[in-house]
Design a protein around this nucleic acid. Sequence first.
DNA 1: GCAAAATGTGAGAAATCCTCGTATTTGTCA
DNA 2: TGACAAATACGAGGATTTCTCACATTTTGC
Lengths: 202, 202
Amino acid sequence: MTDTQMRRAPSQKRSRDRVDAILANATGMIAETGSDALRMSELAQRTGISIGSLYQYFPDKSAIVHALAERCNEDSRACIAEGLSTVTSMEGLAAAFGTLIDTYYAIFLAEPVIRDIWSAVQADGALRAMEVEESRRNGGLLGARLKALRPATDPSKIDATALLVMHLGEATMRLAVSVERAEGDALVEAYKRMAIRELTAL
Amino acid sequence: MTDTQMRRAPSQKRSRDRVDAILANATGMIAETGSDALRMSELAQRTGISIGSLYQYFPDKSAIVHALAERCNEDSRACIAEGLSTVTSMEGLAAAFGTLIDTYYAIFLAEPVIRDIWSAVQADGALRAMEVEESRRNGGLLGARLKALRPATDPSKIDATALLVMHLGEATMRLAVSVERAEGDALVEAYKRMAIRELTAL
DNA sequence: GCAAAATGTGAGAAATCCTCGTATTTGTCA
DNA sequence: TGACAAATACGAGGATTTCTCACATTTTGC
């Protein structure tokens, strides 16, 4: 939730509460009716503010979707950073990575709205680059660990692999929650095998 | 280009030509200004027909995007089917798969509009399922080969792996063409390694 | 050559995003 | 406290875009 996407930095407490309420209601609407059905007028109405006020906090619809996605990203980044923080060996990294994916998958299953928020991001031309940016950040976290564990390996190869593995992790999650549960579980397992094999082969 | 997405099956030659012209112009517009800028009125104007005629051939904007994506899918399916058709061993499959990815990547690089068409698909709530359907079809092609080569392996495991590998192949392509060329090349190479290792391990 | 079917047309209805001029609330200072 | 300024709230309506529909034109079958 950077400043740039806020039209006006909320200085009063009421303002901050309103921003939170707006985002909470936006999340609720997306969860209920899908990202395509997010209407600015309805969002204002639900939040109990006027359409004009809504646009004082967010310059446009993109900014709201961006804020929602950024929240998800912050959570996942924290989760990844924490999961990898104690790793000191390649075996440890493999185990931590597996746990990480399981945790991430559990979150996706528990909060399907996350996938809908990502749909909203992809539906918005101005936000599509977010996905790559996020993969890059997550890949950076993984790549840093890998470089420490494999100082002899070409760093650019590590970067490419880390980026790819994290990006495909996201793709796997979205596919897995789009199919029936048992199949999704199998897909996640297959991804874990594949990714860990690739990482340990570095 | 199934019947269902056409409002009216074109029975006269002129109609068929018009449908082709509409799709060609839609492709051109997406290539020039991106999928978000595809305007029905401009598409009609470019094609030299009225907005009403446009809607006689396609029930809505989704149908046009669907038709464009379906064309891409047909091409890639044919490419995959042909690439895998002569495979008789696991080594042969690995080689064919590598070639397939290289070919696919070359096509993506040569015709960036393909990625923009996929953006249009993802921007359209009614079409998002296309991506999974396409991965499923492509996974089916790969899975069939794998089952023939690995009769002893659990077929459901093969299905999951094949679906995942093809889905992640699509994801890799889109990521690769979103970054600078050298990095994209490295990502595709990493994906090929990873996928082939997974397939041969089955 | 004529009637019926198919196709073509574009004004405008409907939906939606967002702006902007005005009204209200809050903060500040004599 | 009262009064002025700054911040915040409001919502009618401008602008854009998708898609419909009643009517005009062209093609086909006989």
